[in-house]
């Protein structure tokens, strides 16, 4: 029977919450096509995750729990997805375009010579069964309307936060079918040696709120301790840690940075937003001490509300901001942290 397949991503045996957005978009497609919505869950704890997927709208689930699927590796995951597509010929394979999902769906679409449309922000089922989508190209300067091929399986990855999850039905149950992995460990060329988890950080890609710092973080009024190699770098690092992070913590926000701040060694590259960094679209983006170079805009221009805090009233960031404050971020951010604490009752 034909179906809409939704890949539910897991990490350490837990569902990645943005996966539920794919079940939201998948439900609409499945209903329009009058076919079931099937959750695919591979790896540790897949059965429990599949049960949760039912509460988010999946009619049934296909799971595979095997040591070869503990921790995402492209080869075993893609081989299994491709086998399921070849055997069952689903109409659609859909996932939220996290880094792993983009990789997995692209690989399987190549294996099966199928259409693939990524970073989808809107979708519409046409009468011929082909899915028409909108997706940003040229760093969001242009919108591309594209269509998949109804003649075969259509693979789609959604831009995070572009689609809403279904309302949870806590008593919903799904039929769970278990399948064996396609590849044995000996057939897999890649081996995970170790993993060092970044401590206490919120994932930028799916953050609802991001607090970002730029070159202005160097204007920390604190004195650097005697003997540090570079007083400016120390001040900026201290500012990220002791001024920006407390605000992020109150808001449950992720910490971002401009390329200038990363290149100057103020904060690791993993935090960079913009071209050659991450593309984000949170509900709220607070840019502090960021001038708003075009390369930075490329990564955050689709944020819903942008707040700019900068000492230079002429900074380009104010042209894209909803709210602007001209002033010393080292006075404003602590005041803002205190205010949020008070108002949000934390």
């Amino acid at each position: 029977m034909s179906a809409v397949y939704t890949w539910i991503e897991t990490f350490n045996g837990q569902a990645v919450p943005s996966s539920w957005e794919a079940l939201g978009a998948g439900r609409t497609l499945a209903d329009s096509m009058k076919i079931p919505l099937v959750a695919l869950v591979f790896g540790k704890n897949a059965n429990a995750v599949a049960a949760t997927a039912a509460t988010y709208g999946a009619d049934s689930a296909i799971v595979s729990e095997d040591a070869t699927l503990d921790g995402f590796r492209l080869e075993p995951f893609a081989a299994l997805l491709t086998q399921l597509v070849n055997e069952n010929k689903p109409k659609v394979v859909i996932a939220v375009g996290t880094s792993r999902a983009r990789e997995l769906l692209a690989a399987s679409a190549a294996d099966t010579d199928s259409s693939l449309l990524t970073e989808v922000t809107e979708l519409e089922l046409q009468s011929d069964g082909a899915i028409k989508v909108s997706r940003p190209v040229y760093a969001g300067k242009i919108v591309s309307q594209a269509v998949g091929s109804a003649d075969g399986t259509q693979y789609l990855t959604l831009r995070g936060r572009a689609f809403k999850p279904n309302a949870v039905k806590s008593d919903a149950k799904a039929d769970i079918k278990t399948v064996a992995p396609t590849l044995a460990e000996n057939d897999i060329a890649t081996k995970i040696e170790s993993f060092e988890e970044a401590v206490g950080s919120v994932n930028l890609a799916d953050a609802a709120i991001i607090v970002s710092g730029g070159r202005g973080m160097a204007n920390n009024p604190k004195d650097a301790p005697a003997g540090v190699a570079d007083a400016t770098v120390w001040k900026a690092q201290d500012g990220f840690e002791n001024t920006l992070k407390p605000l992020a913590n109150v808001l449950g926000a992720a910490v971002g940075a401009s390329r200038a701040a990363v290149d100057a060694g103020y904060i690791p590259y993993a935090h960079q937003v913009g071209q050659t960094g991450k593309t984000v679209s949170p509900d709220l983006y607070i840019a502090s001490g960021i001038s708003g170079a075009i390369q930075h805009q490329a990564g955050m221009r689709t944020s819903k509300v942008i707040v700019a805090i900068n000492k230079d009233a002429e900074s380009p960031i104010f042209k894209m901001a909803r709210y602007g404050i001209v002033g010393d971020l080292y006075k404003i951010i602590p005041a803002l942290t205190a205010e949020f604490k008070k108002r949000l009752g934390k």
Partner: peptide
Amino acid sequence: DVGTDQHNYQIAR
């Protein structure tokens, strides 16, 4: 330009 990395994985496959 195309705003994607999908071709990377497809080359490997």
